[in-house]
């Protein structure tokens, strides 16, 4: 179970007019039950790293292993399945499908895996209740505040009981009270032996993580690893 996510010599280059190296030969192991914060200036590669870990982007070179399974970039179908079952993703904003209610947004990923609507709906209601949003279950995303949208996004990220939670600046567009609430919910998730990895610009929340990863020019530096 140790080293649940293993990244080895990960490099990401964007080739357009000129080659830009966003990630430069990164190797790291993420362990379950731990929280990891990723900090760094804009353009340092935080989001790129999270995109690679969430398997929505492919590395130029290097490898990713999730629970001892080596990820194959060309096997999109299997990667989609891994993402659906093992990875929950929360973005900064506009996480939810605008034409679906909060409840529908939450139960959709589970319906994809279980194919049992009633079971998915019941599970979604329970998770929405856990994030304190029961009264807004039938509201559409545009009827919810930024903080409420993020709480629904967290409920959605949890519905398939994933081993990994990835959050890319989840409180970037929220006020401090809502940001604290979101991080309180996020940090509570590690109790279930999950890996929580989040990118943030907020030093206060970054320092609360078990391991702080500092990124600069595509390189990582491990700070205050308490693990």
């Amino acid at each position: 179970m140790n080293n649940f996510i293993k990244i080895k010599n990960l490099t990401k280059k964007y080739e357009k007019n000129k080659s830009i190296k966003v990630l430069d030969d990164i190797s790291f192991n993420f362990e379950p039950g731990k929280t990891y914060s990723i900090m760094g200036p804009s353009g340092s590669g935080k989001s790129t790293l999270l995109n690679l870990l969430s398997l929505i982007d492919d590395p130029t070179t290097g490898s990713i292993e999730i629970s001892s399974n080596k990820i194959k970039s060309n096997n999109k179908v299997e990667n989609d399945l891994i993402r659906a079952k093992k990875i929950g993703i929360i973005y900064q904003d506009k996480n939810l499908l605008s034409d679906f209610t909060a409840l529908e947004n939450v139960y959709l990923p589970n319906l994809l895996v279980s194919k049992e609507k009633q079971k998915s709906v019941d599970l979604a209601k329970k998770l929405i209740k856990n994030v304190g949003m029961s009264s807004r279950i039938n509201h559409f995303p545009n009827e919810l505040s930024g903080g409420e949208n993020q709480r629904i996004a967290i409920a959605r990220a949890l519905i398939n009981d994933p081993d990994i939670i990835l959050a890319d600046e989840p409180t970037g567009s929220l006020d401090s009270d809502n940001a604290k609430l979101i991080f309180k919910i996020l940090f509570n998730l590690k109790k279930k032996n999950r890996i929580i990895i989040f990118a943030t610009h907020n030093r206060y929340f970054a320092n609360m993580a078990d391991c702080k990863i500092m990124m600069n020019d595509g390189n990582i530096q491990i700070i205050n690893a308490t693990i």
Binding site: S54, I56, K76, V77, D80, L81, R83, A84, K85, I87, I89, Y91, K94, N95, L96, L97, S98, D99, L108, P109, L112, V113, R156
Partner: peptide, 15 residues
């Protein structure tokens, strides 16, 4: 487009 991205991020396949 954004919704397609969200669907892909929750594991919906290209198919």
């Amino acid at each position: 487009t954004r919704d397609i991205g969200i669907l892909k991020s929750i594991g919906v396949s290209n198919k």
